[in-house]
Design a protein around this nucleic acid. Structure first.
Lengths: 228, 228
DNA sequence: TATTCATATATTGTCGACAATTTATCTTGA
DNA sequence: TCAAGATAAATTGTCGACAATATATGAATA
């Protein structure tokens, strides 16, 4: 559903230069190729992409909307600086928003959508079985799961907030803070239970389970923070 | 370092033309002076404000971030079209986000902040007593109340999402859908109970009460929608 | 040496113009 | 009359240049 790295060939919705640069620069920031906290030099970046500053600034303003860049008047753009505090704030927001999304998903998801969700879970199980230690796929897979539920809510505003405005920040944290989730197995069971609640059309339970699921990740980070 | 006498009176935060136009146009859109759904003619608006298109587009991109404008590649900006469905979506998001904000506020608000909140409630009570029918002040006051709690959460991300990205949309609905809240008295009691829970540092209860408070407004809209 | 101030450099904000695309208008044919 | 296609007009996307502001450099002074 969302724009994966590979699907650019099929859905060629990219029409303008600014959009294209937006997508590319977004990826580079998420992966840390443009270091966090670094200042954006508009002339330099414009030369890099071989575009004018106007076009670049169009792209930069979009990146600001994703929370990847911060802007100060007369000073310019700067890549956001990640911190544990900000990560915990994101968890709080995700807990509330995805909890609501899950509640609505339980009410609105079609049986086809639920079937897809189950399929995804099975895929993840196999992936996990195949490569025990490798947490990368599990992490990306985890996002897929959360995405499908958010889309399942049918609430366009929720979808925009989570999938367009917060998604890339979350991915940036996963790339650069690289939390090698030791909760893989536990998270899997939690996903399973969430699906069950959705299938039962039990919105209240689905919301509680999703909130606990995300809250557990937050507590995990908080615990690690306190031990350091 | 010479601080002119004149600059001290006005908060000289407005530095750039784009920012200034952003603020003015935002207000005009919220109030409906620029009709919802209408196409933005960049050349025309640029002439109106006597600025270049580049500067205008800077302002427009910010307005897109507020959800007041929508943009399509090669077609341009258009003022968002309000609808009851979208309003209900906003209520769902506010329910979850402000619920979380209230929870955190109960944990984090200082006694001074709580005192301010109480004072605000008293002011509203007097306003309401003075002008029974006039719902305008009550409505704006309601927003003040919700704002203070969101700020009290201390969560910068929550603050940004609610106060910068959703606030103006909410105001736009109040201006143009003009819901003459018949829940004034009830809402007042609910506000009171929320403050009490915050003062008791009972985050869970505070969250539940805030969610019910917002949910009641949503149900109110849904009820009216069904009767029409 | 460290600090302050003036100067120079670089960067962002703003502008007007041209190119690419969309929308409106007009012609043509059934 | 209506539909479809070609042409004209208008709008958005993109560009390079200049002005206003911020940062870096260096001289002068205590």
């Amino acid at each position: 559903m969302q724009e994966t790295l590979l699907s650019s060939s099929t859905t060629k919705t990219v029409t303008t230069r600014a959009e294209s640069v937006f997508g590319d620069l977004r990826q580079r920031i998420v992966e840390g190729l443009v270091p966090m906290g670094s200042k954006i030099s508009e002339p330099e970046l414009a030369r890099y992409y071989d575009i004018s500053r106007s076009t670049l600034r169009d792209a930069l303003s979009r990146l600001e909307g994703c929370g990847l860049l911060e802007r100060k008047a007369n000073i310019g753009y700067r890549v956001v600086t990640l911190s544990t505090e900000k990560l915990l704030e994101i968890f709080r927001v995700r807990e509330s928003l995805e909890g609501m999304a899950c509640h609505l998903a339980a009410q609105n998801m079609s049986s086809e959508q639920i079937a897809e969700l189950k399929l995804l879970l099975i895929e993840h199980e196999q992936h996990e079985a195949l490569q025990q230690g490798e947490a990368y796929f599990q992490k990306e897979g985890d996002l897929d799961f959360h995405f499908k539920i958010v889309f399942g809510s049918g609430n366009q505003l929720l979808i925009r907030l989570l999938c367009e405005e917060l998604y890339y920040l979350v991915r940036m944290y996963r790339y650069q803070f690289g939390m090698a989730s030791p909760r893989a197995k536990k998270a899997f069971r939690e996903h399973h239970n969430i699906i069950q609640a959705i299938e039962d059309k039990d919105g209240e339970l689905a919301e509680i389970l999703m909130r606990r699921h995300i809250s557990a990740s937050r507590l995990n980070v908080e615990k690690r923070m306190n031990t350091l």
